[in-house]
Amino acid sequence: MRRVHARLREALHLTREAVDRGDPAADPARELLLFCHGFCSALDAHHTGEDRTLFPAIAAARPDLAPVLRALEQDHSMFGHLLGGLQAAVASRSSPAVLAGHLEGIAAIMESHVRYEERQLLTVLEGLDLDADPGEVLGTL
Rank of each mutant, 00 (worst) to 15 (best):
D75T: 02
A88R: 14
E126D: 14
I58L: 15
L82Q: 12
A89F: 11
E104D: 15
A107Y: 00
S112A: 14
G80W: 02
A25K: 03
A42H: 13
S95N: 11
L43K: 01
A26G: 14
E136T: 10
R70I: 05
D51N: 13
R62I: 03
L34S: 00
G101T: 01
R70F: 08
D51Y: 05
P134S: 09
P56V: 04
A26C: 11
A66H: 11
R52A: 13
A71G: 03
P56F: 10
L86R: 02
A71R: 14
A97E: 15
G101E: 07
V98R: 10
A60K: 13
R93V: 09
E50H: 02
P28C: 13
D23M: 08
A18I: 05
D51S: 08
C40P: 03
L54R: 06
A45L: 15
H102M: 07
V114M: 12
G127K: 04
P134T: 01
G105W: 08
L32R: 08
G127L: 05
L122P: 01
R93P: 04
G135H: 09
D44V: 06
H47T: 00
A88H: 08
L69T: 02
R62E: 11
C40V: 10
D129G: 03
D64R: 01
F35L: 08
E117D: 00
A66E: 14
S41I: 00
A100E: 10
L128C: 02
A132C: 09
E31Q: 10
L103P: 07
E104F: 04
E136L: 13
E104W: 02
A71W: 07
G49Q: 06
P67S: 09
E31T: 09
L33T: 05
V98E: 11
V137I: 09
A45N: 13
P134C: 12
A18L: 04
Q74D: 15
R115C: 08
D131Y: 02
A42R: 10
D27I: 00
R21M: 10
D75R: 01
G139M: 05
Y116H: 12
D75S: 07
P28F: 10
V124I: 12
D51Q: 07
P28D: 10
Y116L: 14
M110P: 00
G101M: 06
T53R: 14
A66D: 14
R62V: 04
D51W: 01
C40R: 04
S94A: 15
G49K: 03
G139A: 07
D131G: 00
L83T: 05
E50L: 00
C40W: 00
H81E: 08
A61G: 06
A18Q: 06
I106P: 01
R62H: 15
D44M: 07
L83F: 04
A61K: 01
G101I: 06
A61Q: 02
A66Y: 09
C40E: 03
A89T: 01
G101P: 01
H46W: 11
A57C: 13
